[in-house]
Amino acid sequence: MSLIKLQGVSKAYKRGQVQVKALNNIDLTIENQEFVSIMGPSGSGKSTLLNILGCLDQPTSGTYELLGKRVEKINDWKLSDIRNEYIGFVFQRFHLLSNLNALENVELPLIYRGVWGKERRKKAKEALEAVGLGERIHHLPSQLSGGEQQRVAIARALVGNPSIILADEPTGALDSKSGENIMSIFNRLNQELGITIVQVTHEEDIARYGHKIFRLLDGKIEKIEEVK
């Protein structure tokens, strides 16, 4: 059973009287424990595709199977449960709460799951240690470098033990050395913990950390490239 399977997925938006097709008849399969990259020029549909994969948006037409279950038409409450249970998100701009320290930021997904305080703090600390920030757990985002903030964001994605991590330009706001460190963490999570990684990137060298590259153009998959 494939982890993710899209068949004939399209997504259209209305802009005034004009209908714009962001995705056009996408067929896509991602297997368990794969590390894949999605690339394409601005407006090619990368972010729309990632939003659908993350159950943040639903397709206009087509089917989406996640872990063998059809999810393209289920209600917002169930989509929220799926996101919380199976998916971790990492964003370009980190999206950390400035008034919370690293530990408190990482605890947030567990609060939504109803995990109690002592157990919650233990899991958050372990997640921060897993990304090399065990000594920085009480630092605020303003006291951390960009690379460290992104590692906090990865720990937050990791803390709920997700099947999938979806990353939107995870190195886009970082210098090259910090970007390499982040990709090293993703590789370790993929290889050692078996977490499936799906990242959107515009950087060819970053894309090639994955096993496979889906190249989008005008809302369609133009090419699927195996990385050697």
Rank of each mutant, 00 (worst) to 15 (best):
F186S: 08
T196M: 01
T48G: 14
N187V: 02
L140Q: 13
Y13W: 12
P59S: 08
P41N: 12
E225A: 10
L110P: 12
L128V: 09
H95F: 15
P141S: 09
E129V: 11
V152T: 09
S44I: 03
V198L: 06
E72T: 02
R15K: 14
Q150E: 08
V20N: 12
V115E: 13
C55G: 04
G146Y: 08
A127G: 11
N187E: 13
N105H: 09
G134Q: 07
G179E: 01
A157K: 11
E129M: 12
G8R: 10
H139L: 10
V71G: 03
E222I: 00
I195T: 05
V200F: 05
L6F: 15
G40T: 11
A155Q: 01
K69D: 15
Q150I: 08
C55Q: 11
L216K: 03
E222H: 13
T196W: 02
Q149W: 00
L110S: 10
G43T: 03
D27R: 07
V198T: 10
E119D: 14
V90Q: 05
L110G: 10
M183P: 01
A22V: 11
T201S: 11
R151D: 07
N190K: 12
M183W: 05
R136F: 12
A102N: 07
M1A: 13
E135P: 02
G219V: 02
R215W: 13
I30A: 04
A207I: 09
L174D: 03
I213L: 04
I165Q: 05
L216F: 09
A157L: 06
T60Y: 02
G43F: 00
G179I: 05
T48A: 07
L108Y: 03
P141D: 08
K69S: 15
Q191I: 05
G114I: 07
G88N: 02
V71Y: 02
S176H: 14
L128D: 01
V152I: 10
P109D: 04
E104Y: 00
I164G: 05
A157H: 08
H202D: 10
K46Q: 04
Q92N: 14
L216C: 07
D57E: 15
L67W: 00
N84P: 01
N51E: 06
I185A: 08
M39W: 09
V131L: 06
N101I: 02
N161D: 14
L96T: 06
G54K: 01
R120Q: 12
L56E: 03
E104M: 03
T29R: 13
E126T: 10
L49H: 04
L49W: 01
G134D: 08
E65W: 09
P109V: 04
M1R: 10
Q7S: 15
D175P: 11
G40I: 02
E169V: 02
F35L: 11
G146C: 06
H138M: 11
E119L: 12
I165L: 06
I197G: 13
N181A: 09
V18A: 12
K5F: 00
V227S: 07
E135T: 12
E126M: 12
